[in-house]
Nucleic acid binder design. Structure first.
Length: 425
DNA sequence: TGGGGTTAT
DNA sequence: ATAACCC
């Protein structure tokens, strides 16, 4: 806006990655402060999905089985974390708090946020240039202990970024009681990689001269965010094991193996280059609820599970205020070999007469939805044949704002408030 | 390996 | 609808 494209793309960004420490465990310690100084794990089914640092000292790791965790640490206290409601709510409080500083906040999972603070940095830089020099230095760590050159405006911008990151962490602690790490760098990839270098409750800034060192410190390519399990397997088959290998690998061969789009993107990642913007997440694109279990093998059981999942979901949608236009059922069938990844799903539009009822209290939207979901189920499973499910998931998506006659502003602020009583038709 | 999320094809 | 990615 007002700036030529060339000047805008040449401008250096400042991005912060905020990563809360053992998030679920922290939320549980706030809910019950007596757990504070004890080894604590959060359990889902027979897995300890995360744990506090008292437990980590004693050898408990993320995603460890309950059996192994208890062996490592017999005093381990476990709380059930299968209901994500408290974590989800706290997570959005963090995102909203960051949104008070700056509009460009992108969520990643429940415990991470990217914030593009380029504009805030520019503002402070100008204040500095007008008001003379500031004595304040970097906040937190500098990756590699690299020396800062205050004559280099890129360094100065990142130093200001580190001060803002410190303010983020202070606000998150003061207002929500949560601790976390932050990484400051010139793009999302680097901010995320550098945020993990000093681990609980600390922050690190990366200066451009240390970028290659950071990338070379990644001993395995799967540590590069954006290079996942599948791509790693294919890269390994090509003899590519770390970021250096990927940098040096012939582009043309890579493009033929992985396709131009993936090849070009991940090869740039291997140099620490990432021009993907911080995209404000806004409200969620979907609401889902799932449950896994040992066995579900009859239509009646499936219906019961669906009836268990629906009320919670409908409540969440109701509180959000938007109306979903699509519903999806996902199942996982038992398989002794790859337990991971044999999910299938069917989705369909929600009939318009049902959509209208989503906002209204006390209208029975449950039973028609159960009927729709059972139809979707029968599209995947022949109920006359034996079956063995280990997971059911329901997802509402394609969320649309309510049709509002009062254009925009009024409707937005009104939906936050409790509706006036006795106004029903 | 849980219970969520996102985007690309 | 699936496949990939993220936590």
């Amino acid at each position: 806006h007002g700036k030529p494209v060339s000047a805008r793309s040449a401008a250096r960004r400042v991005v912060v990655h905020v990563d809360l420490d053992c998030f679920y465990a922290q939320v549980e310690m706030i809910r019950n402060p007596e757990l504070r100084d004890k080894p604590l794990g959060v359990q889902q089914k027979y897995i300890v999905v995360t744990c506090n640092y008292e437990a980590r000292k004693r050898g408990v790791k993320k995603l460890m089985s309950v059996k192994d965790a208890k062996e490592k640490c017999p005093q381990l206290i476990l709380v059930n974390g299968e209901d994500l409601t408290p974590y989800r709510e706290t997570s959005y409080k963090v995102t909203e708090l960051l949104g008070e500083f700056c509009p460009l906040v992108e969520r990643l999972g429940f415990d991470e946020n990217f914030v593009d603070i380029t504009e805030i940095v520019e503002k402070r830089l100008k204040q500095l240039q007008e008001g003379g020099c500031s004595r304040a230095g970097v906040s937190g760590h500098v990756y590699n202990h690299q020396a800062i050159n205050l004559h280099d405006t890129t360094h100065v911008r990142l130093v200001i970024g580190s001060q803002i990151a410190e303010e983020f962490r202070e606000a998150i602690y003061e207002r929500l009681g949560l601790t976390g790490c932050a990484g400051v760098a010139s793009n999302k990839l680097l901010s995320k990689l550098v945020s993990g270098t000093f681990k609980p409750n600390q922050q690190t800034v990366l200066l451009p001269e240390s970028c290659q060192d950071l990338m070379r410190s990644l001993d395995h390519i799967q540590k590069v965010p954006g290079i996942g399990y599948k791509t790693t397997k294919r890269l390994e088959a090509l003899g590519v094991r770390n970021a250096c290998d990927l940098q040096a690998f012939p582009s043309a061969v890579l493009e033929k193996e992985l396709g131009v789009s993936v090849a070009q993107r991940i090869q740039k990642l291997s140099y620490g280059e990432d021009d993907s913007p911080v995209i404000p997440s806004g409200p969620p694109q979907s609401f889902s609820d799932e449950d896994s279990f040992k066995k579900c093998s009859s239509e009646v059981e499936v219906k019961e599970k669906i009836e268990e999942l629906l009320p919670n979901l409908l409540d969440r949608i109701h509180r959000d205020g938007r109306q979903p236009h699509t519903v999806r059922l996902t199942i996982r069938q038992f398989s002794s070999t790859d337990r991971w990844f044999n999910r299938e799903s069917r989705q369909c539009p929600i009939p318009p007469h049902l959509i209208q009822k989503f906002g209204k209290e006390s209208s029975n939207v449950v039973s028609p939805l159960v009927d729709i979901l059972m139809k979707l189920f029968r599209k995947m499973i022949d109920v006359h044949l034996p079956f063995h499910l280990t997971l059911l998931s329901i997802c509402f998506s394609n969320l649309k704002d309510l049709p509002s006659s009062k254009k925009g502003s009024i409707g937005f602020y009104l939906k936050q408030m409790s509706p006036p009583s006795g106004s029903g038709k």
